[in-house]
Design a protein around this nucleic acid. Sequence first.
DNA 1: CTGGGCATCT
DNA 2: AGATGCC
Length: 726
Amino acid sequence: MDGSEDEVEEEDETEWRSSFLDSAPLSHAAAPGPSLDKTSGPTPAHRVILHFDLDCFYAQVEMIRNPALREVPLGIQQKYIIVTCNYVAREQGLTKLMSVTDAKEKCPQLVLLKGEDLTHYREMSYKVTELLMSYCPLVERLGFDENFVDITDMVERRLAQTSEPNDFSFKGHVYNHVGADVKAGDHPQLALGSHIAAELREAIHSKLGLTSCAGIATNKLLAKLVSGTFKPNQQTALLQENQSDIMGALSGLRKVPGVGHQTAKRLRALGLVSIQDLQLFPLNDLVREFGGPSARRLKNLAVGVDDSPVIPTGAPQSLSDEDSFKKMSSTKDVLEKIQQLSSSLVERMNKDGRQPHTFRLTIRRYSATNRWFSRESRQCPIPSHIGQKIASGSGDDAVVQLVPLAMKLFHKMVDGNAAFHLTLINVCFSNLQTRGAPACGKGAITSFFTQSTSPRKTQICSSQSQNDSSQSGDSHCMDRQLSTHSMITQRASQKTVTTKSPCSSGFKWEQSSTVAVEDPPLQTEYCSTARSGPKESNNAVTRRLPPNVDPEVFKLLPEEIQKELLSPAYANSLPSPSTSPSAPVAVPDATHIRKNKSPESFTDSKNIEDKAEAINELDPAHRVTTVNHQRPPRKSAFPGENVTAEGRLLFRQSSDCEFPGNVDPEVFSELPPEVQRELMSEWKQQKPVLKAPSSRKPGRSPMTKDRKAAGKGSQANSLLKYFKPS
DNA sequence: CTGGGCATCT
DNA sequence: AGATGCC
């Protein structure tokens, strides 16, 4: 399958392209109106759905950040797992989700980068979604590296204005077909879809530097299944007539998206192992086990039928941050971990711009049998004064007030006096609400999103007929997007790559109430904390609190928590130890909070961030990689990579912070000296800019859009926070 | 030596 | 609040 990509390729591409690019006719004679129905006219019987899957996503992001890594086998490590690796590594037998031990055994020269901090992956992920949305608003995310796009309307509009439906061709592969085997004229929608898919993949590559795979089919299930047929950096279309082929080719029921471990287990209990087993299994029997809706869904999936609509994802409905570990058994450690997680979460929440109204703490207890099951969580409302601080930028104040809340939740689950053994802690903000944005009420962006998402009705699972009514994307929106698209495409033709992050516009909600929340009167009902030791009165205790801890909240805490908050472990995280109650206490900043905690956090996140910042300012298209290599020149997906020697820096074998903290020193030391020098100089070139990940710089667009949640109550979104203004 | 997110459904 | 599923 090597070089011969795009086997079914014709030359009328330019014609198609121009046809595709020019702005749409404003009349949609044949465009699906609100009454899109199979009975109503020559409208599309089928949707055209694209599925995009970024190649080894985390590895690609890292290789963009440091192009020298393109030449070496690279693995992205989270804890003891290689979550993904580049294709150099895959050639040596590495696979996804392999243990570090196995991976190093199989590939001793493997270069490992820590991937627990998802910040860069998340940012790039949203850039991809944003880019796709600029062409077509119906984009649904699946994880960080996959997107569905419903281009039905775009295709129909193009077809309506295309005079010669016989000139059609397919771009890329066609499943189970070779060469000119396939008559594209018989599948105009999919054929056109394949060209759009190619166009979008090219945009992702030219603007963001990422390669991807795509699948073109009539529903999400098939598009996803077919997209992985040829990897990497290729695309495949699936014709209706080959649906049963691709379903039958699945090696087992687990391969069906939507059938997870549990479902597969229950199916196996019914004697079902293969796709065919499920296809032939009586629906009634299946209903008995799974209930009507799930049973029908499963039966449909088995034959490649999937009516589920592409639901625009928009901004996330929750933000969470978590860490796992082998063992955590002291309340002090829990407190510190919660503090660390909350600090980072609050920072992210602040960049988002929305205000969280619910806080949730999740833990996982150790269990010899099932280490990764049984999560427990408790949630509570976030007092508005805290929520406002989060959204307004007083993040450090917010953290200080949030931690006691979290500890309260923690002790709803864990008895601090008894022994415990945790293996994971997660903190989560949800119920995110857009706060009164002045320009947000009826702004263009807002209405755009309102339109694009409101017409969503939950599609019911119609039985067999494959022709699901395409969720009538509102055509107004599509037209507007199409014109946007031409503009963007024109810009793309200038070969300007917009990977830079600055985008300034450091707009922030100015919060008049920044100082408004005052410590409530201390005298009222102090007695609730009955046995505060004889040492100090409640008043004294309260005075020892950090200035931004709400005494009201404090006194509601279990006394053990109160003690913890006053303990050295906690106080040390503050700039001013509690020794002198009368001394003015500075507001702790995130760096302080971040600083004193578990050893692993000393892995210098500073350098990493610095590097990221510096790299982000470089234009990937123009940056010349300086690599000194005698290694077999891997064919890079990116042309124009150049190689020169650098090596003015000496490599220090010490395991200190001379190189980024996410680089395994051990592994690094095993690299060839040339590679070491190369990497070192790469790192050294990045000049320090920021200290904390608090790069608040990516300005928040003043606009927040409300995405009227389909069905559910408000889902106020500020998706634009994730999408840099283009 | 099995991650760190997200979402939906019940 | 938990279970399940996806990456």
